[in-house]
Design a protein around this nucleic acid. Structure first.
Lengths: 157, 157
DNA sequence: TCTAAACCGGTGCGCGTGCATCCAAACAGG
DNA sequence: CCTGTTTGGATGCACGCGCACCGGTTTAGA
């Protein structure tokens, strides 16, 4: 990584707005996460990370995902996911199931109770998201936001 | 808060992109925070939260801020800030100073060592921010991003 | 085939955080 | 002036997370 401007997308010259943008992004994310979690917690006794994991599982055709993949999607370390699945399993929302093709592997599987709980919580989640966070953006801004965030996602893999 | 569309900015109808936008925002923020923190930690043994606090103090004319205000700016609970200042004080980067006008109050004050450490770390911080995060945006996108985030900031105060 | 390396998930441990609580100081109302 | 309430900051405690490491399994290379 040189300091000369040799083509490519990443800029090298400092721009004064960058720290401000980063600060705002942090604030917005932390604030939204706290509000969302508070709503989910009071209404459904469900932490945000738990809701996220249940959602990822539900998006899968058969409601199951390898622990490793789930950890990546949930932005959790492998040990972190182990504990989270422990809690969800204790609450009967998911189960662990052995992987036949790889004896090391485990699936986290959504239970019927898990599906029900997720279905109950989703309206709260969507409403909260809209009412306390993204509602202030019009459709254009929302789309703009989506494309910008997409660029930011895996910066230069 | 009704469900009818009675003027005002917050939308009430669900939009399918909202969850995706929120997920991306989370990913981007968490990822950037981890990369930034890793860089600061390896290069200057400074956690991101510590850097943030030092920055806020340095932006102040006399390098001091009330604990309460600092907690708000740093997105920390009051107890969280107490501990963080404990650590920074132990490392000699800040000091606590009594507030003359309010005997309950305390100032966190940047020391000379704190200023030095911040000055050393800032180039790393700015470079990291640019190289691993905001560099992929051109100037227009960055400005757009700033205005959108501004709208999102204190949703409906 | 046999061995070394990579990988999957779990565990021990320490750290940073928030919540509930506490104490002292400040303010409000009588 | 005295009392009840509010505010600023600190502390006990529990929780969730990441890191280092481990045992078991799979894969790659000689």
């Amino acid at each position: 990584m040189t300091l000369t401007s040799e083509g490519g997308s990443p800029r090298r010259t400092p721009r004064s707005e960058e720290p401000a943008v980063w600060r705002m992004l942090q604030r917005v994310q932390v604030r939204a996460a706290r509000l969302l979690e508070a709503d989910l917690l009071t209404a459904h006794d469900l932490a945000l990370a738990s809701y996220d994991v249940l959602t990822r599982l539900a998006e899968t055709p058969d409601g199951r995902l390898r622990m490793n993949d789930l950890a990546d999607q949930a932005l959790l370390s492998r040990s972190g996911l182990t504990r989270l699945i422990d809690r969800l399993q204790r609450d009967g929302l998911v189960e662990r199931e052995a992987c036949t093709s790889d004896a090391r592997g485990l699936y986290a599987v959504l239970t019927a109770a898990g599906r029900t709980r997720l279905a109950e919580a989703t309206p709260t989640y969507l409403r909260s998201l809209r009412a306390r966070f993204l509602g202030v953006l019009d459709d254009d801004e929302l789309r703009q936001c989506a494309t910008t965030l997409t660029k930011l996602l895996p910066p230069p893999p």
